[in-house]
Design a protein around this nucleic acid. Structure first.
Length: 422
RNA sequence: GGAGACUUGUCCGAGUGGUUGAAGGAGCACGCCUGGAAAGUGUGUAUAGGGGUAACUCUAUCAAGGGUUCGAAUCCCUUAGUCUCCGCCA
């Protein structure tokens, strides 16, 4: 959520920045400014009246103490009159506040100055590429065929147990998941991230904190009986660890990593996008999250990008780094880099990581703050990135490394997988 | 799932209707003392929001939400959480 004081002071800048995402409802900004003015006016009125009543109540207390009951009674009636008026005012105020809040949460984050104006993924900028695209032999097949051939994932039985898009990993396929998770976590903790294993369901407040609610409600599985949501990413529970906390400046930066299954409804997806492991409802992912001093968040963003890039390099996969244009960025992000790996048999780039700086958009909702040198509390900046999402990594590992005699795994995985090939 | 006890500031802890945003202590910060430190001692030490150039001031917050009252940390209701006992259970 954007800070109202910022919008108040930089209304035009806010509109201009939102323009880079082609945000269609700039009138909301004006509405917000107007509502804010209303709220503040009502606040002054309400609080003045409240102050009057408070001091009257104190006087009544004193009069009672002195035994001047008659005077006290008189005063009481006066205050009682004010009370009705105050109730009406309060109602107006809370209405206005609610309206303001409802409008405010419709505004997405302001893209960073460097973010290019753009509407579609085609307008994303390829920052750099790495790794080598392998030349596959004549009989090369996509990963869904390899999965069948080596009996790694049983999609049909997964569909029987739950529904389509819920893979049942099996044998070496299951073990490869475990090996990847283990490797990714070790890699992250070696870089100073603290490992967490969070709950896989969150309450409404948490889902709201990171921005899934109210915006992406339809994307989450909702356990209505208990009012809980299955997490779409570890970002939700892990970032919320520090909700409503003031962190000591000495404890910064906070670096956290977590492996969790992720659950996404992915309503509206179809076609080759959802074939095999390309897009599923439940998948495994290791996430990195940082809470940092606002002055450092862009340096940290670059370091997180480098961290993920190094990890992809170690897997010996062909990859590219994209800098998203305004229109393709998530609602809560100020600047996002996407990582894609090349899946050689499908001849397709697959997104495997998204590293973003949210600046104070999430921390403002969650009230995650620190005390600066001058003793002032300020919002921190939050960042996160996948390191990495497993299914598409697996797809590309399988496709790119297939040989007539088996699938060769990159060296870094050998100790975790317990073998050098499938 | 049933019964009971509880939830106060960074922490411990007092407070059962009236100058209580909240005693006391610990911690922390700054100062004095000291050759330096410890001890001692003095002062300060919540958050959010509003008004004001500023000094400052007002409002809200004692788990959350609602109610009673002129007035609530204190009384009532609802919800959440913690603990104890019983039940069930990997």
């Amino acid at each position: 959520m954007l800070q109202i004081s910022f919008i108040r002071q930089h209304t035009d800048l806010v509109k201009e920045r939102l323009g880079t995402r082609y945000f269609g409802e700039l009138s909301i900004v004006d509405k917000v400014v107007e509502l804010d003015e209303q709220v503040r006016k009502l606040k002054v009125e309400t609080e003045t009246l409240q102050a009057e009543m408070n001091s009257s109540s104190k006087e009544i207390g004193l009069l009672m103490g002195k035994g001047e009951r008659a005077l006290a009674e008189e005063k009481k009636q006066q205050v009682a009159l004010h009370k009705t008026y105050l109730q009406a005012l309060n109602e107006q105020l809370s209405n206005a506040e609610k309206q303001l809040h409802d409008e405010l949460i419709k505004l997405p984050n302001l893209p960073h100055n460097s973010v290019k104006k753009g509407k579609t993924p085609e307008e994303n900028e390829v920052v750099r590429e790495g790794g080598n695209v392998p030349v596959l032999g004549a009989g090369a097949v996509p990963h869904w065929d390899l999965i069948k051939q080596y009996d790694l994932v049983d999609f049909e039985t997964g569909a029987k147990l739950t529904g389509s898009g819920f893979p049942l990993y099996k044998g070496k396929g299951a073990k490869l998941q475990r090996a990847l998770v283990q490797y990714f976590l070790e890699y992250n903790t070696a870089a100073g991230y603290t490992e967490y294993l969070p709950p896989l369901m969150v309450n409404e407040a948490s889902a709201y904190g990171t921005g899934q609610l109210p915006d992406k409600e339809g994307q989450m599985y909702h356990v209505t009986t208990d009012g809980l949501y299955l997490i779409p990413t570890a970002e939700v529970p892990v970032t919320n660890i520090y909700r409503d906390e003031i962190i000591k400046e000495n404890d910064l930066p906070v670096k956290m990593t977590a492996y969790t299954p992720c659950f996404r409804r992915e309503a509206g997806s179809f076609g080759s996008d959802v074939r095999g492991l390309n897009r599923v409802h439940q998948f495994d992912k290791v996430e990195i999250i940082q809470l940092v001093h606002p002055g450092e968040s862009y340096i940290v963003l670059e370091s997180m990008v480098a961290h993920v890039e190094q990890l992809l390099k170690s897997l010996e996969l062909p990859y590219r780094v994209l800098r998203l244009c305004g229109g393709d960025m998530g609602f809560t992000s100020a600047l996002t880099y996407d990582f894609e790996v090349y899946s050689a048999a499908q001849q397709k780039w697959l997104e495997v990581s998204s590293v973003s700086n949210f600046e104070s958009f999430q921390t403002n909702r969650m009230k995650i703050r620190f005390k600066d040198g001058g003793g002032k509390t300020q919002l921190l900046h939050s960042l996160n990135g996948s390191s990495l999402a497993l299914p598409r990594i697996v797809a590309s590992l399988l496709e790119n490394n297939q040989t007539p005699t088996g699938i060769n795994l990159p060296g870094v995985l050998h100790p975790y997988f317990g073998a050098s090939s499938i």
